[in-house]
Design a protein around this nucleic acid. Structure first.
Lengths: 138, 138
DNA sequence: AATAATTGTAACTAGAATGGTTACAGCGGT
DNA sequence: ACCGCTGTAACCATTCTAGTTACAATTATT
């Protein structure tokens, strides 16, 4: 990956819409605001539903938040849309040469640093709630 | 992207090798330790060279660090291997609907949060030097 | 009961990134 | 001149992305 998928920003956009205008939020309406295909939104809604963030009404349409906007963080959304593999931002090359002192030790040494960096990013995401985000422009 | 390319971890591995055993560090030798194809290492070395981190000797072979290991951070290496597009970790969906209050404002509001999260990660990478990393297993 | 709007998925597509591979030209000591 | 190395170009299979078409299932309304 060169960049984290737009699924994440679309999901934030989607939840913001549901929070701001709880009625009228059908997949097509959201797709119109996000400017993408409705199916893309439905896929994202499915992930948000699976994560317990929203309830989607089949047939009649529309969605509601299952948690208050003040209790949904950007990290919750990030995790919901499954944007990284196995919750690891950094991928490491596999099976380095164990006969080499560097090859033997690099994996563990680097892994903990990468994990720390990933955590720093995630904890920053966790500090912002949907409510705060909406508050900046509503 | 599901994950940040192994180019980064391979580059860290490569520089660690050069720091630890300044002689013998030909592309083939490094590739043997990393366990990949020599061309992959040569490509990475080209990027590290372009970033001013190493000097590679064509013809004769081998590479040397252009900065002390204590002055090369993981962030320097991360930046050198060009692992994200335009230095943006998060990609955002484009051209949301400007007729919608959310669509009109989400970009700027979210962008600053994402930038903050990215910075948190990068600053954590900047805190670790090659010297520290090598120190943990040498 | 029929209708219409909506959700939930499956299947397919074009485009791009990844990591590996072969091939070969150019460099530079010996 | 030789030999080993670097620097690239070209190509490949695989995977992810985001969009698209299609259609079955759901549910309020008529």
């Amino acid at each position: 990956m060169k960049q984290i998928s737009t699924r994440f920003s679309m999901a934030v956009h989607t939840l913001s819409l549901i929070a701001v205008s709880p009625n009228e939020c059908t997949g097509d309406f959201i797709a119109g605001s996000v400017n993408t295909n409705p199916v893309v939104i439905r896929r994202i809604m499915g992930m948000l539903k699976k994560a317990g963030l929203v309830d989607v009404r089949p047939g009649v349409g529309g969605a509601t938040l299952l948690k208050e906007p003040g209790r949904i963080t950007l990290l919750d959304i990030y995790r919901a849309v499954d944007v990284t593999e196995e919750n690891r931002l950094f991928r490491m090359h596999e099976s380095p040469n164990m006969n080499c002192p560097v090859g033997r030790n690099i994996e563990q040494a680097l892994q903990s640093e990468l994990q720390a960096a990933q955590s720093a990013m995630e904890q920053r995401l966790a500090r912002t709630t949907l409510e705060q985000l909406i508050g900046t422009f509503q």
